[in-house]
Design a binder for these strands. Structure first.
Length: 197
DNA sequence: CGAACGATTAGCT
DNA sequence: GCTAATCGTTCGA
């Protein structure tokens, strides 16, 4: 697997920049994972963000050091994985919404209970289940076990559009995807903004 | 202490 | 497309 390992300092930018930086990067948890093809940016000045109203027991990882994981339970059912970014205390993070499966396919199929590669990691809850994300990983460093995050090597275009499943601040285009990927949780609209390499 | 509400998904119409 | 499932977190009384 090529690509250099990302360091916490690589997460010092604002959430939108880092969300784009992560498109095409490879994420592995205990050797299982693949290429990140969809992310969403959230930060302290963002009404849709968990960190908008300040630190709480749940979101404390978002106000901790960058380059760490923020894991939360969604709808009482799913575990969703975020990467904390910016400098300490800013409360910014990036939701990992979809991955192109590359390694540990059998393990993912086993956890997900289905075979179709396109359905293994195409959605934040699915990513959580396929990679075995749990509360134990909340606050863990992304450059240490069991995580591994490798910088992107390709130079494909990135697509930007409105975020999914939120009611507040639904207008800003802070959802990013790898242009043309078949593993997105949902397609981007025809008029989505294309960011060239 | 009670109640409302999700950064979702799967399954059915 | 529409909705049930399901429960921890958050906020108001």
């Amino acid at each position: 697997m090529k690509g250099t390992q990302l360091h916490p300092d690589d997460f010092l930018g604002d959430s939108q920049s880092v969300a784009q930086l992560l498109i095409g990067a490879v994420l592995l948890v205990d050797g299982v994972g693949g290429r990140i093809v969809e992310t969403e940016a959230y930060d302290r000045e963002d009404a849709a963000s968990h960190s908008f109203s300040g630190p709480t027991p749940r979101n404390r990882a978002m106000f901790g050091p960058p380059g760490h994981a923020y894991v939360y339970r969604s709808y009482g059912i799913h575990w969703c994985l975020n990467f904390v970014c910016r400098e300490d205390g800013h409360g910014a993070g990036i939701l990992i919404r979809a991955i192109e499966p590359l390694q540990g396919l059998d393990r993912m199929r086993e956890r997900r209970g289905l075979d179709d590669v396109k359905l293994l990691c195409s959605g934040p809850g699915r990513v959580g289940q396929a990679l075995g994300i749990t509360r134990e990983l909340d606050g863990c460093r992304l450059d240490r076990k069991p995580f591994k995050v490798l910088a992107r090597t390709g130079d494909e275009a990135i697509v930007a559009g409105p975020r999914i499943g939120i009611t507040k601040a639904a207008d800003v285009p802070w959802r990013y995807g790898l242009a043309g990927s078949r593993f997105l949780s949902r397609p981007f609209s025809r008029d989505a903004v294309i960011i060239p390499p």
